[in-house]
Design a protein around this nucleic acid. Structure first.
Length: 297
DNA sequence: AGACAGGTAGTGA
DNA sequence: TCACTACCTGTC
């Protein structure tokens, strides 16, 4: 693997297990735009980054080596050996083998806990385009303008202080629907430090989860997602409708309850549960597993 | 028009 | 524990 520091960009040759489409379209992140050249523009930690893959080369555009090392290296989880994880999972059974081969370039991002908590509260009983829209609206209305890329202005995610200062009506304006009150009340709990969300990653998974579920709008599934995508908890197995479908298709009988499926996943995949879930989710959703109509490829 | 979507909270057994 | 239901919003 070779890193080149170019003007306003960082280029990496030979970075394995890295496919922008897989990373951004596997349901873990909502703040990305797919550009006409198939690159992805994302906003995280108050910065705009454009990622493009060509052959064996990844272009990290609109950034510099300083931000790359301080922000994006960790954001993309570059210190983790995904080849080894994939190898272990593929040996489990033929289904995992297929799913891992399909989503070969998935990496689990290390996102900001605050933004992840609010984003996944919005995700409950909601569709991805709507979730993206609501988060984008919140940022445009109540975040800070952080720059322009490809002729489009970008805004940072609203701070804890800002979100706490908003009325329910103002939050509703961003198309958050009935989740606006959840967001309002959660923001206050975070703002008043009744729960320190930046310390939660340091307690064990069960404790972490029970704390997260004190937030209104955060149930078992949303808590699992928050832990997996922003708190480096990988012994979780978030079960949404797609994971439910794929698990029933591959492993289980029809009448197994959500908590049982979650438990089954954790027992089967152990400390790699979160990774397994991502490969299975991406596979199920892209292929429309368990539904009558197959989705676009 | 009515169902449905990447769940949660509230209620009642 | 478990079953059941309402729920913003936008699209099919």
């Amino acid at each position: 693997m070779k890193i080149y520091n170019d003007k306003n960009k960082v280029i990496i040759d030979g970075l394995k297990d890295f496919e922008p489409k897989h990373i951004f379209e596997c349901g873990q992140c909502f703040r990305w735009t797919k550009e006409n050249d198939d690159s992805y523009t994302i906003v995280a930690f108050g910065k705009i980054l454009n990622v493009k893959k060509e052959e064996n080369t990844i272009y990290f555009n609109n950034t510099n080596i300083y931000d790359f090392e301080n922000i994006w290296h960790n954001y993309f989880d570059l210190d983790r050996d995904y080849s080894r994880i994939k190898e272990i999972l593929r040996k489990k059974d033929n289904y995992l083998d297929e799913a891992v081969k399909f989503g070969y370039g998935i990496r689990i991002l290390n996102q900001d806990p605050w933004e992840t908590i609010i984003s996944f509260i919005i995700s409950a009983n909601n569709r991805i385009p709507m979730i993206k829209k609501a988060i984008d609206n919140l940022s445009t209305y109540y975040g800070e303008e952080i720059g322009e890329f490809n002729g489009k202005k970008y805004y940072s995610f609203p701070t804890i202080e800002k979100m706490n200062s908003l009325s329910v009506e103002e939050i509703e304006k961003a198309s958050t629907g009935y989740r606006a009150t959840y967001i309002k009340d959660t923001s206050y709990i975070v703002f008043s430090k009744q729960i320190n969300i930046y310390n939660l990653k340091n307690v064990d998974t069960n404790m972490c989860k029970s704390h997260l579920m004190m937030f209104p709008g955060v149930g078992p599934k949303v808590a699992d997602c928050i832990m997996l995508f922003s708190m480096q908890k990988y012994d979780v197995f978030p079960v949404d409708v797609w994971v439910q479908r794929v698990m029933k298709e591959f492993y289980l009988n029809e009448d197994m309850s959500l908590p049982k499926i979650r438990q089954y996943g954790i027992e089967k995949f152990k400390e790699l549960s979160g990774f397994a879930q991502q490969y299975l989710f991406y596979y199920a959703r892209e292929l429309g597993i368990g539904t009558s109509s197959r989705r676009r490829s």
